[in-house]
Nucleic acid binder design. Structure first.
Length: 198
DNA sequence: TAGGCCATCTGGTCCT
DNA sequence: AGGACCAGATGGCCTA
């Protein structure tokens, strides 16, 4: 429902520190992203528990060299984490580009991307099964084409899913899970619901 | 302005 | 031991 054409994020205090190692930026206002203001009142559970890199841990640190080493390792860890998240986001973007959806003008959120992808895969699988079964009237009869194997695999998974759904609730997905039309209908409905911003 | 989404930092845990 | 992964916390940006 949102357009995410955001400008690049400002450099965080930690990124500044990374660019100029050893240089402190104490006067920087709280401009960066969340986690960098460790000395502020409420911190994350872990930071609250340990003091993070705030005054307490600083006092606990021994020599300055050890502290610098620790800070350096943390900066390197942050950078790796950033790269990891960037790769994850690239994968999300690649996924967005192969999922057909209606809102071409607006970027799908991550949860929308995953949900649509799941249902798109389901609908494609169901379509393949429909096509292969029309060529092979006896679904149970094994054939040279991958269709029946795929069907058996798919059907087995569907049975397991149905059992789980019945155990949990089963109400939301209905009882026509095996029918391709059900998948396609649900996928189409979902696309339109996303378009309407629900 | 509230709420959704996101990027980033961070410490803990798992894995190689 | 070090890197990858994870989840919580936080603040910024955007839209309704």
């Amino acid at each position: 429902m949102k357009t995410k054409n955001r400008p690049p994020r400002r450099r965080t205090p930690m990124q500044d520190a990374e660019a100029t190692p050893g240089e402190q930026t104490p006067d920087r206002p709280q401009s960066g992203s969340g986690g960098s203001e460790l000395t502020k009142g409420l911190r994350s559970r872990t930071a609250r528990a340990s003091g993070g890199r705030g005054e307490v841990s600083r006092r606990r640190q021994g020599s300055g060299g050890r502290r610098e080493n620790s800070v350096q390792r943390r900066l390197e860890s942050n950078e790796r984490e950033r790269q990891r998240m960037h790769k994850l986001n690239n994968a999300f973007q690649a996924l967005r580009e192969v999922i057909p959806h209606v809102r071409a003008d607006k970027k799908l959120s991550k949860i929308e991307t995953l949900t649509l992808a799941k249902n798109y895969i389901k609908s494609l699988t169901a379509t393949i099964l429909t096509m292969s079964s029309s060529r092979l009237p006896g679904l149970e009869a094994p054939g040279p084409a991958p269709g029946p194997k795929l069907y058996q695999h798919y059907h087995h998974q569907q049975q397991q899913q149905q059992q789980q759904q019945q155990q949990v609730a089963g109400a939301m997905l209905g009882v026509t899970e095996d029918q391709p039309q059900g998948h396609l209908q649900r996928y189409s409905t979902q696309i339109h619901s996303f378009r309407e911003g629900s």
